[in-house]
Amino acid sequence: MQRGDFLEKVVAVVGPTAVGKSALGLKLAQKFNGEIISGDSMQIYRGLDIGTAKDSPEELSEVPHHLVDISDVTERYTVKDFQQKARRVVENLAENEKNSFVVGGTGFYLNSLIQNLNLGGKADGDNELRKELLKIEKNSGIDGLVKVLRDEDPLAMKTIDISNARRVIRAIEVHRETGKSIVDQNNGNQWAEFYLIGLTDDRDKLYARINSRVDKMVEMGLLDEVRPVYDNRDQIPQAKNGIGYKELFPYFEGTATLESCLDEIKKNSRHFAKRQLTYFRNQMDVDWYNISEEPDYQTKIENRIKGFLGGYNG
Protein backbone atom coordinates (compact mmCIF):
# COMPACT_ATOMS: atom_id res chain seq x y z
CA MET A 1 0.00 0.00 0.00
CA GLN A 2 1.34 3.41 -0.91
CA ARG A 3 0.65 6.50 1.20
CA GLY A 4 1.47 9.76 -0.53
CA ASP A 5 4.74 9.34 -2.35
CA PHE A 6 6.11 6.69 0.02
CA LEU A 7 5.99 2.93 0.20
CA GLU A 8 5.81 1.06 3.46
CA LYS A 9 9.24 -0.03 4.69
CA VAL A 10 9.76 -3.53 6.05
CA VAL A 11 12.87 -5.09 7.55
CA ALA A 12 13.22 -8.88 7.30
CA VAL A 13 15.69 -11.08 9.19
CA VAL A 14 16.38 -14.31 7.31
CA GLY A 15 18.82 -17.19 7.36
CA PRO A 16 19.15 -20.85 8.30
CA THR A 17 17.60 -22.45 11.35
CA ALA A 18 19.38 -21.97 14.70
CA VAL A 19 21.55 -19.07 13.47
CA GLY A 20 20.02 -16.51 15.84
CA LYS A 21 17.34 -14.74 13.77
CA SER A 22 14.80 -14.49 16.59
CA ALA A 23 17.25 -12.97 19.08
CA LEU A 24 18.39 -10.36 16.56
CA GLY A 25 14.83 -9.59 15.46
CA LEU A 26 13.82 -8.99 19.06
CA LYS A 27 16.69 -6.54 19.66
CA LEU A 28 16.03 -4.67 16.43
CA ALA A 29 12.30 -4.34 17.06
CA GLN A 30 12.98 -2.98 20.53
CA LYS A 31 15.52 -0.46 19.25
CA PHE A 32 13.56 0.76 16.25
CA ASN A 33 10.02 1.05 17.66
CA GLY A 34 8.92 -2.09 15.87
CA GLU A 35 6.84 -5.21 16.16
CA ILE A 36 7.64 -8.70 14.91
CA ILE A 37 5.81 -10.62 12.20
CA SER A 38 6.69 -14.29 12.23
CA GLY A 39 7.69 -15.60 8.83
CA ASP A 40 7.77 -19.19 10.04
CA SER A 41 5.28 -21.72 8.65
CA MET A 42 5.09 -23.73 11.90
CA GLN A 43 5.01 -21.10 14.64
CA ILE A 44 1.43 -20.27 13.71
CA TYR A 45 0.26 -23.42 15.54
CA ARG A 46 -0.88 -23.22 19.13
CA GLY A 47 0.76 -25.81 21.37
CA LEU A 48 3.77 -26.39 19.12
CA ASP A 49 6.27 -24.31 21.02
CA ILE A 50 9.44 -26.30 21.64
CA GLY A 51 9.81 -28.04 18.29
CA THR A 52 9.18 -24.80 16.38
CA ALA A 53 11.68 -22.84 18.53
CA LYS A 54 9.17 -20.13 19.41
CA ASP A 55 10.34 -17.24 21.51
CA SER A 56 9.72 -17.77 25.22
CA PRO A 57 6.62 -16.25 26.85
CA GLU A 58 8.90 -13.59 28.34
CA GLU A 59 10.33 -12.71 24.92
CA LEU A 60 6.88 -12.70 23.35
CA SER A 61 5.78 -10.20 25.98
CA GLU A 62 8.76 -7.87 25.43
CA VAL A 63 7.74 -7.01 21.87
CA PRO A 64 4.35 -7.67 20.20
CA HIS A 65 4.52 -10.71 17.90
CA HIS A 66 2.12 -11.32 15.02
CA LEU A 67 1.21 -14.57 13.21
CA VAL A 68 2.26 -16.68 16.20
CA ASP A 69 -0.26 -19.04 17.84
CA ILE A 70 -3.05 -18.13 15.43
CA SER A 71 -4.12 -21.61 14.27
CA ASP A 72 -5.04 -24.97 15.74
CA VAL A 73 -2.93 -27.92 14.59
CA THR A 74 -6.01 -29.34 12.85
CA GLU A 75 -6.16 -26.35 10.48
CA ARG A 76 -4.41 -25.82 7.18
CA TYR A 77 -2.34 -22.69 6.63
CA THR A 78 -1.21 -21.65 3.17
CA VAL A 79 1.28 -19.24 1.65
CA LYS A 80 -1.64 -17.11 0.58
CA ASP A 81 -2.95 -17.00 4.15
CA PHE A 82 0.44 -15.73 5.29
CA GLN A 83 0.72 -13.21 2.48
CA GLN A 84 -2.66 -11.67 3.20
CA LYS A 85 -2.31 -11.62 6.98
CA ALA A 86 1.27 -10.31 6.99
CA ARG A 87 0.47 -7.47 4.60
CA ARG A 88 -2.49 -6.48 6.75
CA VAL A 89 -0.25 -6.37 9.82
CA VAL A 90 2.37 -4.25 8.03
CA GLU A 91 -0.25 -1.75 6.96
CA ASN A 92 -1.83 -1.58 10.42
CA LEU A 93 1.53 -1.05 12.07
CA ALA A 94 2.38 1.73 9.62
CA GLU A 95 -0.88 3.48 10.45
CA ASN A 96 0.21 3.41 14.10
CA GLU A 97 3.71 4.66 13.24
CA LYS A 98 5.32 1.33 14.09
CA ASN A 99 8.01 -0.44 12.08
CA SER A 100 7.59 -4.02 10.83
CA PHE A 101 10.23 -6.71 11.32
CA VAL A 102 9.53 -10.00 9.56
CA VAL A 103 11.57 -12.76 11.21
CA GLY A 104 11.69 -16.34 9.97
CA GLY A 105 13.20 -18.92 7.71
CA THR A 106 10.35 -19.96 5.40
CA GLY A 107 11.71 -18.48 2.19
CA PHE A 108 8.72 -18.82 -0.08
CA TYR A 109 6.45 -17.20 2.51
CA LEU A 110 8.65 -14.13 2.58
CA ASN A 111 9.08 -14.11 -1.20
CA SER A 112 5.30 -14.14 -1.67
CA LEU A 113 5.13 -10.99 0.44
CA ILE A 114 8.06 -9.18 -1.17
CA GLN A 115 7.14 -10.01 -4.77
CA ASN A 116 3.42 -9.53 -4.19
CA LEU A 117 2.86 -12.90 -5.84
CA ASN A 118 -0.52 -13.59 -7.37
CA LEU A 119 -1.19 -16.95 -5.79
CA GLY A 120 -4.66 -17.35 -7.23
CA GLY A 121 -7.65 -19.29 -5.99
CA LYS A 122 -9.05 -19.49 -2.49
CA ALA A 123 -6.70 -19.43 0.45
CA ASP A 124 -7.99 -22.74 1.76
CA GLY A 125 -7.74 -24.47 -1.60
CA ASP A 126 -10.97 -26.35 -0.89
CA ASN A 127 -12.09 -27.28 -4.39
CA GLU A 128 -12.26 -30.12 -6.90
CA LEU A 129 -8.66 -29.66 -7.99
CA ARG A 130 -7.45 -29.99 -4.40
CA LYS A 131 -9.46 -33.19 -4.03
CA GLU A 132 -7.93 -34.55 -7.24
CA LEU A 133 -4.40 -33.82 -6.06
CA LEU A 134 -5.00 -35.27 -2.62
CA LYS A 135 -6.21 -38.45 -4.32
CA ILE A 136 -2.96 -38.61 -6.30
CA GLU A 137 -1.03 -38.19 -3.06
CA LYS A 138 -3.01 -40.97 -1.41
CA ASN A 139 -2.52 -43.39 -4.30
CA SER A 140 1.01 -42.53 -5.45
CA GLY A 141 2.53 -40.57 -2.59
CA ILE A 142 4.72 -37.51 -2.98
CA ASP A 143 6.33 -39.06 -6.08
CA GLY A 144 3.02 -38.92 -7.90
CA LEU A 145 2.57 -35.25 -7.11
CA VAL A 146 6.14 -34.43 -8.11
CA LYS A 147 5.59 -36.13 -11.48
CA VAL A 148 2.59 -33.88 -12.12
CA LEU A 149 4.57 -30.81 -11.13
CA ARG A 150 7.53 -31.82 -13.31
CA ASP A 151 5.25 -32.20 -16.32
CA GLU A 152 3.31 -28.98 -15.75
CA ASP A 153 5.70 -26.56 -14.07
CA PRO A 154 9.40 -27.47 -14.40
CA LEU A 155 10.34 -23.96 -13.22
CA ALA A 156 8.78 -24.61 -9.82
CA MET A 157 10.61 -27.94 -9.64
CA LYS A 158 13.88 -26.01 -9.35
CA THR A 159 12.65 -23.69 -6.61
CA ILE A 160 10.14 -25.10 -4.15
CA ASP A 161 10.67 -27.84 -1.59
CA ILE A 162 9.46 -30.90 -3.50
CA SER A 163 9.67 -33.05 -0.37
CA ASN A 164 6.74 -31.07 1.03
CA ALA A 165 3.47 -32.39 -0.42
CA ARG A 166 1.50 -29.28 0.54
CA ARG A 167 3.92 -27.01 -1.32
CA VAL A 168 3.83 -29.24 -4.40
CA ILE A 169 0.04 -29.31 -4.37
CA ARG A 170 -0.15 -25.54 -4.07
CA ALA A 171 2.32 -25.06 -6.93
CA ILE A 172 0.19 -27.26 -9.20
CA GLU A 173 -2.96 -25.42 -8.19
CA VAL A 174 -1.48 -21.99 -8.90
CA HIS A 175 -0.14 -23.08 -12.28
CA ARG A 176 -3.50 -24.47 -13.35
CA GLU A 177 -5.46 -21.50 -12.00
CA THR A 178 -3.24 -18.75 -13.45
CA GLY A 179 -1.35 -20.41 -16.30
CA LYS A 180 1.92 -19.21 -14.76
CA SER A 181 4.46 -20.79 -12.45
CA ILE A 182 4.07 -20.14 -8.74
CA VAL A 183 7.57 -18.64 -8.81
CA ASP A 184 6.61 -16.22 -11.61
CA GLN A 185 3.51 -14.57 -10.19
CA ASN A 186 4.72 -11.03 -9.58
CA ASN A 187 1.76 -8.67 -9.83
CA GLY A 188 4.01 -5.85 -10.99
CA ASN A 189 2.65 -3.75 -8.14
CA GLN A 190 5.27 -2.91 -5.53
CA TRP A 191 3.46 -2.18 -2.30
CA ALA A 192 6.43 -2.00 0.10
CA GLU A 193 10.18 -1.55 0.21
CA PHE A 194 12.11 -4.36 1.91
CA TYR A 195 15.54 -4.51 3.48
CA LEU A 196 16.65 -8.12 4.01
CA ILE A 197 19.24 -8.96 6.65
CA GLY A 198 20.74 -12.44 6.32
CA LEU A 199 22.53 -14.17 9.17
CA THR A 200 24.83 -17.09 8.49
CA ASP A 201 27.74 -18.88 10.13
CA ASP A 202 30.56 -21.23 9.26
CA ARG A 203 29.05 -24.60 8.39
CA ASP A 204 30.59 -26.59 11.24
CA LYS A 205 29.55 -24.00 13.79
CA LEU A 206 26.03 -23.79 12.39
CA TYR A 207 25.64 -27.56 12.43
CA ALA A 208 26.90 -27.67 16.01
CA ARG A 209 24.29 -25.05 16.94
CA ILE A 210 21.58 -27.14 15.29
CA ASN A 211 22.61 -30.30 17.12
CA SER A 212 22.78 -28.45 20.43
CA ARG A 213 19.35 -26.93 19.89
CA VAL A 214 17.79 -30.35 19.34
CA ASP A 215 19.35 -31.65 22.56
CA LYS A 216 18.03 -28.61 24.43
CA MET A 217 14.56 -29.15 22.98
CA VAL A 218 14.51 -32.64 24.44
CA GLU A 219 15.49 -31.25 27.84
CA MET A 220 12.65 -28.71 27.57
CA GLY A 221 10.06 -31.46 27.01
CA LEU A 222 9.90 -32.04 23.25
CA LEU A 223 8.65 -35.62 23.66
CA ASP A 224 5.64 -34.45 25.69
CA GLU A 225 4.85 -31.91 22.98
CA VAL A 226 5.10 -34.38 20.11
CA ARG A 227 3.13 -37.20 21.74
CA PRO A 228 -0.35 -35.65 21.23
CA VAL A 229 0.60 -34.78 17.65
CA TYR A 230 1.41 -38.45 17.07
CA ASP A 231 -1.73 -39.65 18.84
CA ASN A 232 -3.95 -37.37 16.75
CA ARG A 233 -1.96 -37.39 13.50
CA ASP A 234 -4.95 -38.41 11.37
CA GLN A 235 -6.63 -35.11 12.28
CA ILE A 236 -3.52 -32.99 11.78
CA PRO A 237 -2.97 -32.25 8.07
CA GLN A 238 0.19 -30.13 8.09
CA ALA A 239 1.78 -29.70 11.50
CA LYS A 240 2.54 -33.41 11.82
CA ASN A 241 5.01 -33.08 8.93
CA GLY A 242 7.18 -30.50 10.64
CA ILE A 243 10.84 -31.25 11.35
CA GLY A 244 11.15 -32.19 14.98
CA TYR A 245 7.78 -33.92 15.02
CA LYS A 246 7.53 -36.50 12.24
CA GLU A 247 10.96 -37.97 13.06
CA LEU A 248 9.77 -39.01 16.53
CA PHE A 249 6.79 -41.02 15.28
CA PRO A 250 8.86 -44.25 14.91
CA TYR A 251 9.92 -43.91 18.56
CA PHE A 252 6.29 -43.77 19.69
CA GLU A 253 5.49 -46.69 17.40
CA GLY A 254 8.26 -48.69 19.03
CA THR A 255 10.12 -49.25 15.76
CA ALA A 256 13.14 -47.02 16.46
CA THR A 257 15.22 -45.86 19.40
CA LEU A 258 15.00 -42.34 20.74
CA GLU A 259 18.64 -41.75 19.87
CA SER A 260 18.13 -42.70 16.22
CA CYS A 261 15.06 -40.46 15.97
CA LEU A 262 16.91 -37.50 17.45
CA ASP A 263 19.76 -38.12 15.02
CA GLU A 264 17.18 -37.95 12.23
CA ILE A 265 15.88 -34.61 13.52
CA LYS A 266 19.42 -33.23 13.56
CA LYS A 267 20.12 -34.53 10.06
CA ASN A 268 16.89 -33.16 8.61
CA SER A 269 17.47 -29.83 10.35
CA ARG A 270 20.93 -29.58 8.82
CA HIS A 271 19.56 -30.38 5.37
CA PHE A 272 16.82 -27.81 5.89
CA ALA A 273 19.40 -25.17 6.83
CA LYS A 274 21.25 -25.89 3.60
CA ARG A 275 18.05 -25.52 1.56
CA GLN A 276 17.22 -22.27 3.33
CA LEU A 277 20.60 -20.77 2.48
CA THR A 278 20.31 -21.88 -1.14
CA TYR A 279 16.86 -20.36 -1.48
CA PHE A 280 17.69 -17.02 0.10
CA ARG A 281 20.92 -16.66 -1.85
CA ASN A 282 19.36 -17.55 -5.20
CA GLN A 283 15.94 -15.94 -4.89
CA MET A 284 16.39 -12.77 -2.86
CA ASP A 285 18.55 -9.69 -2.52
CA VAL A 286 19.97 -10.20 0.99
CA ASP A 287 22.59 -8.26 2.94
CA TRP A 288 24.54 -11.16 4.51
CA TYR A 289 26.46 -11.21 7.80
CA ASN A 290 28.58 -14.09 9.07
CA ILE A 291 28.14 -13.97 12.83
CA SER A 292 31.52 -15.61 13.50
CA GLU A 293 33.57 -13.54 11.09
CA GLU A 294 31.94 -10.19 11.92
CA PRO A 295 31.81 -9.72 15.71
CA ASP A 296 30.33 -6.23 15.30
CA TYR A 297 27.64 -7.33 12.85
CA GLN A 298 24.81 -6.04 15.05
CA THR A 299 26.22 -2.51 15.04
CA LYS A 300 26.62 -2.63 11.26
CA ILE A 301 23.05 -3.87 10.86
CA GLU A 302 21.66 -1.16 13.12
CA ASN A 303 23.43 1.53 11.11
CA ARG A 304 22.05 0.10 7.85
CA ILE A 305 18.54 0.03 9.29
CA LYS A 306 18.81 3.65 10.42
CA GLY A 307 19.62 4.61 6.85
CA PHE A 308 16.85 2.42 5.44
CA LEU A 309 14.11 3.63 7.78
CA GLY A 310 15.19 7.25 7.76
CA GLY A 311 13.31 9.25 10.39
CA TYR A 312 12.10 6.27 12.38
CA ASN A 313 10.28 6.90 15.64
CA GLY A 314 12.81 6.03 18.32
Results as ranks from 00 to 15, higher is better:
residue 267 K to N: 14
residue 243 I to D: 07
residue 269 S to L: 13
residue 261 C to S: 03
residue 251 Y to D: 04
residue 261 C to K: 05
residue 256 A to Y: 02
residue 261 C to Y: 08
residue 244 G to Q: 08
residue 233 R to N: 08
residue 233 R to Y: 02
residue 261 C to I: 02
residue 246 K to E: 12
residue 249 F to I: 09
residue 257 T to R: 03
residue 251 Y to V: 06
residue 255 T to H: 02
residue 249 F to P: 13
residue 256 A to M: 08
residue 272 F to V: 09
residue 250 P to W: 00
residue 259 E to C: 02
residue 261 C to Q: 03
residue 256 A to T: 10
residue 253 E to S: 03
residue 263 D to P: 05
residue 246 K to Q: 14
residue 259 E to S: 15
residue 267 K to R: 14
residue 261 C to H: 05
residue 242 G to C: 04
residue 260 S to F: 08
residue 243 I to G: 15
residue 246 K to R: 15
residue 258 L to R: 10
residue 239 A to H: 08
residue 264 E to N: 03
residue 240 K to L: 02
residue 255 T to S: 14
residue 271 H to S: 03
residue 255 T to Q: 07
residue 244 G to D: 09
residue 256 A to S: 12
residue 269 S to M: 10
residue 250 P to L: 06
residue 257 T to H: 05
residue 237 P to N: 06
residue 241 N to R: 14
residue 238 Q to E: 14
residue 241 N to T: 15
residue 235 Q to A: 12
residue 245 Y to C: 13
residue 271 H to G: 04
residue 233 R to D: 01
residue 253 E to I: 04
residue 234 D to Y: 07
residue 249 F to K: 02
residue 244 G to K: 01
residue 271 H to Q: 06
residue 250 P to C: 05
residue 239 A to Q: 12
residue 253 E to L: 02
residue 262 L to S: 04
residue 249 F to D: 02
residue 236 I to F: 03
residue 272 F to N: 04
residue 232 N to F: 01
residue 236 I to R: 04
residue 237 P to D: 10
residue 248 L to E: 06
residue 262 L to Q: 12
residue 246 K to C: 10
residue 243 I to P: 11
residue 265 I to Q: 01
residue 246 K to M: 12
residue 247 E to G: 09
residue 258 L to Y: 07
residue 245 Y to N: 09
residue 236 I to A: 09
residue 241 N to W: 06
residue 254 G to R: 03
residue 272 F to A: 11
residue 238 Q to W: 11
residue 232 N to S: 08
residue 245 Y to L: 14
residue 267 K to W: 10
residue 259 E to R: 13
